[in-house]
Design a protein around this nucleic acid. Sequence first.
DNA 1: CGGCATCCCGAGGGATACTG
DNA 2: CAGTATCCCTCGGGATGCCG
Lengths: 132, 132
Amino acid sequence: MNTPLFAYNIYDSRCPTRDLLARLADKWVLLVMDKLENGPMRFNTLRREIMGITQKMLTQTLRKLERDGLIERTVFQTMPVTVEYRLTALATTLIETVTVLAHWAESNMDAVAAAQTAYDSANPSLNLQSLP
Amino acid sequence: MNTPLFAYNIYDSRCPTRDLLARLADKWVLLVMDKLENGPMRFNTLRREIMGITQKMLTQTLRKLERDGLIERTVFQTMPVTVEYRLTALATTLIETVTVLAHWAESNMDAVAAAQTAYDSANPSLNLQSLP
DNA sequence: CGGCATCCCGAGGGATACTG
DNA sequence: CAGTATCCCTCGGGATGCCG
């Protein structure tokens, strides 16, 4: 029968993979990982380049990713301190997927916007424009 | 110089692609799209197979995806009515990435769990176990 | 520079009841 | 079967201030 070595099932709400997916399915997580694709970066560089992210969210995102083993944090005892973040080996198995997803939005924005316009004019009653 | 045809930039917080990414970066969106990979499915089938999703969230997710042109909704006037959801052509350019991301969680759950344990024992002070 | 600690508001989303 | 409509409550996350 060739049973799989893992019994994880993303469709089971009680499976720990569900929580892992929820952590990955986060815009800040995707943006941070995507930014780190080309090598390590420092905290404030990330903060500046990922426009709109607050210090709190960046810190929180970096900590979560570090805890999940996806990024590594290195402190250089300069004055003042320098902190660098880089993807781990584990993250390299995921980063390509992340970058494709993040940039799919750019490549297909026009098609999506057209679909939205069509949908909204076909359903004048509903107001989904406001939905997240 | 070969300037790109689109000036969309996912790192610009005011760019519409940012909102699109936020809609894609959603666990229910990923699970629903992944479920529809192998062909059309009906509402209650999706609801049963994606354990833990409420009727409200399933409806909302399907509507958002329909509005973005990623899924198509077909109503069959049987008695009672039958409604079928299927991925659109636009979605086919994204579905592989989505499935890879969703199932990466299953394949790498053990590694992530190990990293978490290591992190938590190395940082007994912090309590990130509770964080989302 | 690279954070941590608080306050606080609004919305995301669960639970429940009703319908064509 | 496939939804819609409310209520209600938590908690994500922005704003602000402080620190080694």
